[in-house]
């Protein structure tokens, strides 16, 4: 069952790699939040009650609900609905993401015998999610898609932190601190400002400073 959930987590990344609709990205991010919540609740096996409450609140309330709702608010307000002319076609994007996931599964099977201390399945999927997150950032051109790519990267890191077999609560809690960046990006500080200055929130508008 747990393995099925983790596979679903990987599928959300494959889905993101083929879609151009921003709302689909948001749905994928919300789904990842729910999956992380289920994993924390049923598989993390922490012995500290406070830690469990904190992490389940963070994953469900923040990652799965608050951030996606706020994202939807931002895209409706700014009228951004599609990722226009990404750097590569959807087909190549899917091919590359699939290759990344194939490598992830290979790592997962290889670690089963070779490395102790980790849960192989978590490890393989989280590595491929981190790499795919970086790939999304590189290949998409809207500022908001970059921020969402960073969120997926961060969810991958959260999964990686869960993959340590021993219990190291503060490592998982530290991953949550990366959400502060997301908050900074989103809470009007920038998205709205950037929107004012560069009407189309396109990353090419941010290329004036160079040598």
């Amino acid at each position: 069952m747990i393995q099925f959930i983790i596979i679903l987590f990987g599928l959300t990344m494959l889905y993101v790699s083929v879609t151009t609709r921003i709302e689909s990205y948001i749905k994928a991010i919300a789904a990842q939040g729910v999956i992380l919540f289920l994993l924390v609740l049923f598989d993390y096996g922490t012995t500290h009650l406070a830690n469990l409450i904190f992490l389940s609140f963070e994953t469900l309330a923040v990652k799965a609900v608050a951030i996606p709702l706020f994202l939807i608010y931002i895209i409706r307000k700014n009228g951004i609905f599609r990722e226009v002319d990404p750097s590569i076609t959807n087909y190549s994007s899917l091919a590359i993401t699939t290759a990344i996931f194939a490598a992830g599964f290979y790592i997962a099977y290889w670690t089963v015998g070779a490395v102790s201390n980790i849960r192989p399945f978590y490890f393989g999927i989280s590595i491929s999610t981190i790499v795919t997150g970086l790939f999304i950032i590189i290949s998409r051109k809207k500022i908001i898609t970059h921020v969402m790519g960073y969120m997926m990267l961060e969810n991958g890191i959260f999964l990686l932190a869960l993959s340590i077999a021993r219990e190291m609560p503060f490592i998982v809690a530290m991953g949550v601190l990366l959400d502060i960046f997301i908050a900074v990006y989103l809470l009007g500080l920038f998205i709205n400002k950037v929107q004012d200055s560069y009407s189309d929130t396109h990353i090419d508008a941010l290329a004036k400073l160079k040598d």
Binding site: Y150, I157, K208, L209
Partner: peptide, 16 residues
């Protein structure tokens, strides 16, 4: 604004 955006984004990936 552009410099700040690049700074925040690149450094946050670095920190990750």
């Amino acid at each position: 604004l552009e410099a700040t955006w690049k700074y925040l984004f690149i450094c946050s990936i670095g920190i990750a």
